[in-house]
Write a protein that binds this DNA or RNA. Structure first.
Lengths: 225, 225
DNA sequence: GGCCGTCTTTACGCGTTCTTGATGGCCCGA
DNA sequence: TCGGGCCATCAAGAACGCGTAAAGACGGCC
């Protein structure tokens, strides 16, 4: 389900959007100020953000910057300001679209559909991570070992992808568990042992003495190039 | 250099845009009607299109459809119409943005920058995708197998098109469902099974052991050349 | 109204994947 | 030296996802 984060300090606007979006099958998250918006965005990983510029605490442009720091999710700005300098500022800060209040609900919904459509069809340039033994193609979601494709299960891929996106870096057990199994399973460290063993069996020359999928006891795991 | 195709039947608008865009380092192509626009777009492969809806020959929405048939270049619609039904129509036809005349030049430029920024590396310029068994013509929306045309239903084509536009890449179930059936149906994975089976029956030599339409269990599907 | 092509929905068998518990090894501090 | 963490490995049942067939629903067209 597509999830939308609605950020506005006017309750009636939030309410109207919640009703309309829910009715169309969207999952709706809400926030009434900038600080909440940023934290909810981190927690909920929405697919698109509808953001009012006139928030009580943080300037809207700074909220955009805060989101753009780590995510490329589409941002649709709502604002009562019609002057073009504000629009330009918001768009150049990284907003994807700008809708002036008062707005028509069907127009906003259409712009939302357009934003989501763009997001899902766009292709990002993702690297191929290589080790001496195997290569991980993050775009194609494929793994090769000596020119042979290695088949991974969804969970195996989920783990390997996170590790491969941070080559050389220590990734904590908690982070791995949270991203692959969700927040409810951050203590099931046993899962990690089982799946790391499987990955090593599929990818390492000597699974008992791994060269690339390294355990850091008590801390987490490291993808060594 | 980024190239922009400006389509408008009002010469003064085209002129104003040409001057402003050229001054900012864009390469500018122009057309005064829909037919010219479509052919110039094919010839010149612009990076982004600024399109007036009120053209003398073809309805603007049809121009959008004509472009979207083979390309995913960003389209920014210009129009004097402020009613939201027109906006919704244009956006749902595949436009990326909608600007109401009269517009501020700096706002249009900001929206243009936003559109170009969003568009990252695009996958498919070659509108014909070939495998050993069958051929997919993305421009004509036709599929041939051993010189015989294979008839596909709209849904079958929708699926195949998305897969063929990302050859070799794993496309997630969610993305396929979202793009073909819409955001409300991203969990109806059964649809995918049914339609992939139909496509395989029509296109694969041995539908039970597909060579090109590959399932990646739990993750999605892959168009293998 | 009846036909036809298309889309949606249900059901079932089968193979794969996930989860879970058990066992044993290693390292380090007591 | 012993005990407690922490980790690696194995195995087995449960749960899941896939392919397939077929029936029902829908809508356009004659």
């Amino acid at each position: 389900m597509t999830s939308v984060l609605v950020v506005d300090d006017e309750p009636q606007i939030v309410r109207a959007l919640r009703i309309n979006l829910s009715a169309r099958g969207y999952d709706v998250l809400t926030a009434f100020d900038g600080k909440t918006a940023l934290s909810v965005a981190v927690e909920g990983k929405p697919d698109v953000v509808v953001l009012d510029l006139g928030l009580p605490d943080i300037d809207g442009v700074d909220v955009i910057a805060g989101l753009r720091g780590w995510s490329s999710m589409p941002i649709i700005v709502l604002s009562a300001r019609t002057d073009s300098s504000t629009k330009v500022e918001a768009l150049d800060a990284g907003a994807d679209d700008y809708v002036t209040k008062p707005f028509g609900m069907d127009e906003l919904l259409a712009r939302l559909r357009a934003a989501v459509r763009r997001k899902t069809t766009q292709v990002v340039d993702e690297p191929i991570v290589r080790t001496s033994t195997f290569t991980v193609d993050l775009a194609d979601k494929r793994v090769h070992r000596e020119d042979r494709e290695v088949h991974l299960t969804p969970t195996e891929w989920g783990l390997l992808e996170i590790l491969a996106r941070h080559p050389g870096r220590l990734v904590s057990q908690k982070q791995l568990l949270q991203e692959v199994w969700g927040p409810m399973h951050v203590n099931e460290t046993q899962y990690l042992r089982v799946y790391l063993a499987q990955l090593r069996r599929k990818l390492e020359h000597d699974p008992a003495h791994p060269k690339h999928l390294i355990t850091e006891p008590g801390m987490g795991y490291r993808f060594q190039l």
